[in-house]
Every structure is written in structure tokens, then in C-alpha cells.
Write a protein that binds this DNA or RNA. Sequence first.
DNA 1: CTAGGGTTAG
Length: 629
Amino acid sequence: MALPSSPFTSKASAFHIPPESNPPCSLLQKHPSLSLLSGCKNMETLKQIHAQFIKFGLHNTHFGLSKLVGFCALSPSGNSNYALLIFDAIENPTEILWNTIIHGYALSSNPELALEFYVKMVSLGNYPNSYTFPSLFKSCKKLMAAQIGKQVHGCVVKLGLDNAVSFTALIGGYVSRGCLDEARELFDGIPVRDVVSWNAMISGYAEVGRFGEALSLFENMWKLNVTPNESTLVSVLSASLAVFRHMQLERVEPNDVTFLNILPACAHMGALDMGRWIHVYINKNCHHLQNSSLWTSVIDMYAKCGSIEAAKQVFFGLETKSLSSWNVMISGLAMHGNGHGAIDLFSKLIEEGIEPDDVTFVGLLSACSHGGLVELGRLHFSSMVQDYKIQPKLPHYGCMIDLLGRAGLFDEAKSLLECMDIEPDGAIWSSLLGACRIHGNLELGEYAASSLFKLDPNNHGAYVLLSNIYAGAGRWNDVARIRTMLNDNGLKKVPGCTSIELDSVVHEFLVSDRTHPQSEDIYRMLDEIDRRLEMAGHVPNTSEVHYDMDEEWKEGILSQHSERLAIAFGLISTKPGTTLRIVKNLRVCGNCHSATKLISKIFNREIIARDRNRFHHFKDGCCSCMDYW
DNA sequence: CTAGGGTTAG
């Protein structure tokens, strides 16, 4: 249905300002039939109640009518036609009735009707109030009608309605269009903010991946102000302090929705301290959330922050385990390279009589792939199709291609690729390309790369992988050619960035970064690391540097990779023996991988590193991935 | 009596 256009543009706009607000119309009646409505479950009962209303004369009261229309228009088991039928028979509908109808349409699949009704309401001389606007904003959001949304916005401003609800709905509209800075401006201007307003803003940041801002906004709910500087991204103060401050200051209390938004942000940032604190908080304050899917997010957070043991503890402590909680646990084990653990858990799930879904198998197959369990991977893949009647989707094929490719079984990978009933996506070609890099398969690598470029010419990572393959083969001309291609296409490298959380503060490092306040000490430590690595016989493998530079320069760059900086910072900032946890946005390079193994031994530190794909637990000179990644 | 925020599983 077309949007009403004229009323919004003409002089006699629906968005003009009323001379004064209407007096509230309240007609409260007490009658036994009214209590019937609260238990009303479906339209059939509603019609009986309606009949009762007529019998006792309640159908002429605004209160009774509001209740009836409210159920029909707003309840999921209601009926908007019936609501309209009642509504149309009312001579002078109250604001409440108009608002209810408008809200009903805002919730429906025809939100444009809400706007139409609003126009009708105003043209009949009724004025909108603070209850009207949130529904209108919701409709505009659904319809992606930014212009109309702005007009409604203007109207709210002119009317001077300064309640949080209208503002929050408006923020929701801006957030949904990705206009976060505008949303933030509004948010900062709300006279009174409550949890829902905070949640709207936090979820906006989290949704578009501005996790740092989401986290710091969360922190600000208690005004735990820490001064951030350019090189450190402050996430939150220590947990106990936060709770204490929270109790002292009467700040807005977060709720389950807040955590639902914040936990994934912690997971992405690897902010374990903060995640842990939220977990404690939920345990203490949210007893009513026993069976909430919030726990799934907690498990996922622990797994992604490198604490797989804590994830297990939460998972096994759950009274009722939803399929999603099984799924995140299996995927978590997969991420940590614990293939057998994932498979065992899958068997348990089957024993408990739970029906796995396609997501379960993505986790299971990726566990096989990260654990190098070729035979088991094949087995579960065919079992998925035959026993569980689940059609493989792209991620399943992706896991299998990854599994076979890493194992160097290129013929089998190719034949699987050929018999797929779906077009392979970029992820599949990337896996194959990655496998070709590991095994130095130049021919297939070139093919995978060209397929990938067709799908996504701007995939910087693909150029790097291909270039690495050429570099490994000493084909420096081709390396240079790729570099030119990158420049010609104006592609910028995603800068490698590693973060480390210390005392609840997340510190981020880029390659050769010197912006950290403790930069001097960090570089002194880097020299020390280099010296001791050399003593231990570490020979930097420069083959993955995709520029043809002289060896010494390459080594220089290698030892200043972002992960090395984060580790050096971790070494100088923590007590001997403390486990270091780092998070990298890209895949760890081969050189850093072997260097980190040695560092774990030389400095006697366990180093848990998350890269783009998975976790590496470095200990005593070995890595949990068994060099298989 | 009517209004705003909602994740996770490669």
C-alpha cells in the first residue's frame, strides 16, 4: 500500500501543534466481566466477553472498549479486523483507542496503516500524545521511512514531549538506519534516560560492530569514568569496584536485555574480566532468568574469551540445556581445537534424546576440521545427511572443504566441490586458498583465488594469501604483481591489530605501534625477546612477508607484529607465570606462531591467543593446535 | 486501560 503523502507535505500538515493538550478521558468502571479479560486467551473467548459487555452495558464505556480493542489489536492471538469493527462503531473514540489501533498496526505487517490512521486521527481533530509517537516511530523504522520519521521527530520536538519512551523509539529508528552518531546525539539529550534508552543505544553500537563504544557506554551506566587515551581502549573498571559503585550511586540498573547486547561485545573484544563480572552480576541479581537464553551468551562469551573451562562449568551447571546452549558449547570446543571434546559432547546430546540441527553440525564439523580429524569428519558429514536428514548448507560444505584441504586431500576436496548442489561462497574459496598456502599448492591456489576475486574483488585477505603462496615459491615477480593489483584497486590492508586485557583495561596494538604510553618499555622487552629467541635458535621465517625486501628489514617488521607487541606488554605488566590472553583480528602468521611457542617456553608463560579463526594455547613450547591451523 | 530496547551457534 502506498504511503499517504499529501498530509505530510501540505500546509495543513498532520504534524502541526495543538493549541493545548486534551484533558484525559478516564472512565473507570468496576465490573466482574472486566476481570474476565485478563484471562482472555483467544478471539473466541473474547467474543463471549464482548457479549457479556453488551449484556451489562459495558460496551458503551471507554474503559471496557479500550480493553476489548486492546486485546483484538495488540494481542498476538487477537484480530485487527475485529478491533476495527468495534472501533468504527464508536462515535468519539478516545485518544487511547486511537493509540491502540495505531500501535496495533505498527506491530502488524502493514505498518503503513499506522501512519494512515494517524493522519485520519489528526484530520478528525484529535491530537497525538506521548503514547502515539513511539508507535509512529516504530512504523517508520519498519517502513524505513526516514523522511516521515524526521517529520514525526520534528513534531515531538515542537510538542515538547520530553519522555524517555518517545526518544528511545526515535533512537531506535536512527540506529536501525545505521545513523549512530545522530542517535547518540539524541541519546545524550534525553532529559531522563532509563534502562531501555541505554539498551537501545548499546544495542546500536553492538549491532554495527562498534563494540568498544558499546562497552564503554555500558560502563557509563554507572558513571565509572576512566580516561581513555589513544592507544588504550578502556572497557571497564574492576568488577568489585563496579558493583560497589553501582550500589552506592543510584544509577540505572542493567537488565537481561542489556547483557544480551553486552555479552557478545565482550566476546568480540575478548574482554574476559568484564564478561566474568557480568556473569557474577547475573548470578547474583537475575535469579528469575534461570532458563533464559542469556546463559547461552555467557557460555559463548567464555569460550570466545579463551576460558573454555569456565564455559564448560556454566554449561554443565545449567538445569535445562537448550539446543543453542549445546550448539555454542560444541562450537566453543571446536574453536579451541578440542575435536574429541566436541564429538563427545555431541554423543551426549544424542544420548539425551535431543535432536541436533544444522547449527549443531556446523560446530561438530568445524571441530573435526580444527582438530584434524579427517575420518570422523567424513563420518559425521554423511551421518548428518543420512541419519538426521539434514541437507548440507554452505557452512557444512565449508567445514568439509577446510578439513580436506588442510589435510592436503585436494582431490577429495575438489570432488566435493564439484558435487555440491549450491554455488560455493567466498568462505569456501578462502578455506581452499588457505589450505593451498599451507601445502604450497600453487595451481589450485591460483584457481581458488580467481574464483574468490570473481565473488569479491575487494577481498584483501585473498590477495595476501595468494601472495604468500607466491612468496613461498620464491616467485617475487608475482608477489610484486599482486601488490600492484592491490594498489590499483585501491585496496587497503586491514591492519593487524592485537588486544590484551589487563586489569579490565583492553589495550590495542597495531604493527610497529609506538603510541602506547609504555612504548619504550615495550620495545625494550621486544629486544629482549628477540635476543632470547635467537639464543634458543629461532630462525624467523620471512616467507610470508609479501613484499620483496631484504631479509633484515623483513625480520624487523616480523618482530614488531601486533601480537608480539601485545605479548611484550603482557610480559612486562604481569607477575611471572600469569597466563596472557591476546586477541588478534586477523590470522596469526606462521612466524609469530613458532615464535610464540618458544616465548611460552622461554618465559614460562601460558599464552592463549585468539585469531580470526580459532584459539591457540601456547605452553611449554607447544601449541594446542598441533601446528594444524 | 495505550508507548520504547532483544543474542548465540563457520
